[in-house]
Amino acid sequence: MTSPPADQTLSPQTGRGLRADAERNRCRILAAARHLFATEGLGVSMASVAREAGVGKATLGRRFANRDELVNAVFADRMDAYVDAVTEALADPDPWRGFTGYLHAVCAMQAADRGFADVLAMTFPAAKALEARRAEAYNRMLELITRAKDTGHLREDFTHQDVVILLIANAGVVTATGEAAPDTWRRLVGHMIRSFATPDAPIPPLPEAPAPTALYRAMVRLSHAAQDSDVEP
């Protein structure tokens, strides 16, 4: 009987080696994607992720068939923290305080990671596990809103869509201000909480506005980014 070519013969040890290589590549891809998503947002290309990880696009494609699969793997732990935030808010004996604390906590997660800021403001239908956790957090958030309204401190015309609007707005602020004025999001959340509250609600102190020079740097940064995007590749 003719033996198969040497490159098609896999000993158990070689098989384990290939699996170990595959796992190393997967870890490198996840680390690269986590870094790029956190610093640049979800707009980075899959080719950029492969380049950052030091692997070929074919290797990336074998590990993650599409962007949704990669997003699902990168942000699984952060989505768990998102669910934990609303669970902790529901455990607060003061539902209004739990509600305002929840808004601060989630917006802080966005500020800490530009990629996660985008994740909370978008949907990824193919990322089944991530979307399941989002749905879990959403259902708990509805309960939190109802409890906050029962205190008389949250406006009756507030809806769950207003949370989504806040997250979209905060994602934009986080992206726009970047490192130039990194605490600007706190001011946004403070103003939004005031708009959500009834006249007699206890309102947290309004965070200080960013310094004019910091906002100017953020505006210059945005201008440069817009100019760069207009440059033909």
Rank of each mutant, 00 (worst) to 15 (best):
N139D: 15
V106T: 15
V173D: 01
A65V: 10
R147G: 06
V86T: 02
Q13E: 15
G190T: 01
D77W: 03
A6F: 11
V173R: 03
G15P: 00
C27E: 09
G61T: 12
H153A: 14
G152K: 06
V44T: 03
P95F: 05
T14L: 12
G98V: 06
A171F: 04
L30C: 03
D183K: 09
K149M: 06
R155Y: 00
D162E: 15
R51E: 13
Q227A: 14
R140E: 13
T123I: 05
F64A: 08
H191Y: 12
F116M: 10
L167N: 13
R194Q: 11
I145T: 05
H191R: 13
A85T: 02
G115M: 08
V189T: 10
D7G: 01
R133L: 15
L90K: 10
M109G: 08
P207S: 07
P205I: 07
L154N: 03
V55H: 06
E232Y: 05
P205H: 03
C27R: 14
T87C: 11
V163C: 14
I29L: 15
A218E: 08
G41I: 05
R67Y: 02
S195A: 12
N170L: 13
G54R: 14
S229I: 02
M46A: 12
F124H: 15
Y102K: 03
D80C: 09
T151A: 01
A20P: 03
A121N: 14
P93D: 14
V49W: 07
D84W: 12
A169F: 01
F124A: 10
A148M: 10
G15H: 07
